[in-house]
Structure formats: structure tokens, C-alpha cells
Amino acid sequence: MAENKDETVVEVNSDTKTISENESLKTEIESKENAAAQDRAKDGEDVLGNAGDADTVTEEPVKPKKKKKKKKELKKKKKLPPKVIVTENLGVRFRIQEQKVDNLKEYFVRLIKRKLNYKDFWALREVNLKIRKGDRVGILGLNGAGKSTLLKCIAGVLKPTEGTVTVKGNIVPLLELGAGFDKDYTGAENIYFYGSMLGYSRSFIKERFKDIVDFSELGNFINVPVKNYSSGMKARLGFSIATVVEPEILILDEVLSVGDAKFRKKSSKRLEKMMKKGVTVLFVSHSSDQVLANCNKAIILDHGRVIASGKAEKICAKYEEMLQ
């Protein structure tokens, strides 16, 4: 049942896309990318000889005409959700020194010798994304493709070298859970500390303190310094704090494997609940299966460029093909 529902949602999305293309709401680049992605997907299906999928592809050009009226009606009822994340021509350049100079002595020696050589390296280039409220976007790519850099830009911790990122709504990053903890602080103190780091007020955390402790299942361990925690306990506490409020944008960097099986179930339940409520999700993964299970849209990054974007199924198929 749930799967069927998902599919319909995806279809609505993809069709609204074509409408918006007609209305030239989208930038040229993105639509080009979509077209390119579709072409590539088509090619891939031809190679694979998957008859069922090929059918849907050939049907597509006909479909929009039939459905256009329907969609317009739909659109009257329901406006397109607002864009929450927009990146325009985003680029990040890293200067890589051939030898890392991180002390004054080296720096001056090299300055005198005129040996301060840099190598430029673009971790991201010309990334144009428009993510609407409620989209669950999977970001696929090999190691070093620029996935984490993209997330860092969106989270606001890394300033892009060129281009702009506009984000509306509060972001909760779930990256390396528990990395912000102070190891000498007890779990309870860390709840306040980490919570304030995410921008929550003290009284706000106080209200939800019990919820956090209950969800993390730490019990009496909450009054033990975090340095004595196991990594699973740390991750559980981190997850509980970060998800105690429903954020508008959630960034997941391969953290769905938190804690033991029991907690994993609980945490994915909580995430699913959030997704149903229309939280925008950015989900980074190597595995297309996970993206398929959690996302309705996806992009593939390769060497810092978006090489494909669109519906999750198509992109995942393409990604699988890329890996071959």
C-alpha cells in the first residue's frame, strides 16, 4: 500500500515539473539536465532490455497531454510547495598545498624561498538545485564526489567560493551523531550543551528533557560522563537531541544505522513520521537501495558536478549502471 502511495506522489511531482517547465519557472540548466537524465535513463533501459520500464518511458510523451487538464485542476487545488533550498551556480574551490604548511616557521621559510605553491581543486562546480518543501532528495555519488561539501554548504558551515545558497527554515544536521559532545560532561549536561548549539533555548530543552532521555533509553547513564559511553549510546543520545523538535530541513549523512536493531527501528520510525509531516530531507548515501526506500527524488554527483537529477527510481537505476 505504502509503495503505491509513494508512486502516485512521485508521478504528481514529475508532472508538476513538466508544467512548471512549460511555464518556464525552472532554469534552463536544470531542465536540460532533466532531459539529459531522461535520455541517459532511456539508453540504459535499452541496453538492459527491460521491457516494462521501456514501456513507461515511451508512454511518457503521450501522458502529459492526457493528464495536463487533470494536473491543472490539481494545481488549482494545491499550489506548488515553496522552494526551501535554492543553490545557484554553486562552486567550492579548495586550495591544496602540496605540503601542508600549518606553522609559522614553515610559512616564512617557504615565503622566502617563494615556494608557497597551491593547487586548485573544485569540490563543487555549477551546482544548480531547487528543492521544494517536502521533497526527500537522495544525493548519490562515489567517494570524493562532493556530497559532504554540498551538505556543508547547505548547512551554512562552509561558505561557497562562487554562487549562492538560499535556505528557508531551520536545519538540523544529523552528521556524525555525538560529535559535538564534550566528553567530560555528563549526558544530561550535554543535552543542554548540544541543544544550545543547535540554537534551542535552555527553557525549551528543559521542557523536552524527559522526552530526550526516554527516547535515548539511557536511563541512569544520563548522569555519567560521555567519555564512558559506548559509541552506540553516544549516537542514540545525539539522535534523540537532534530530532526532539521537528525541523523543517533534515540532513542525513549515512546515519540511519544508529545503535542496535531495536533503536534503529525506533529511529527510522521517528524519521518516517517526520517525512510524512512534510519535512524536507537531504539524504546522502552510497547505496541506491537506501535512497529508493527513503527518497522521492535524487541527484548524482560526480567530480563536483550534478550529472543527473530527477525521480528517484530513474536516477537510482542510472547510478547502478554507473557502478557497473
Binding site: K152, A155, V157, L175, A179, G180, M197, L198
Partner: peptide
Amino acid sequence: GSMIGKVYV
């Protein structure tokens, strides 16, 4: 440093 790379503060 570890926090600077993760959460905006």
C-alpha cells in the same frame, strides 16, 4: 573544530 564543520554557530 569538530563542531565548526558540522553545525552553524
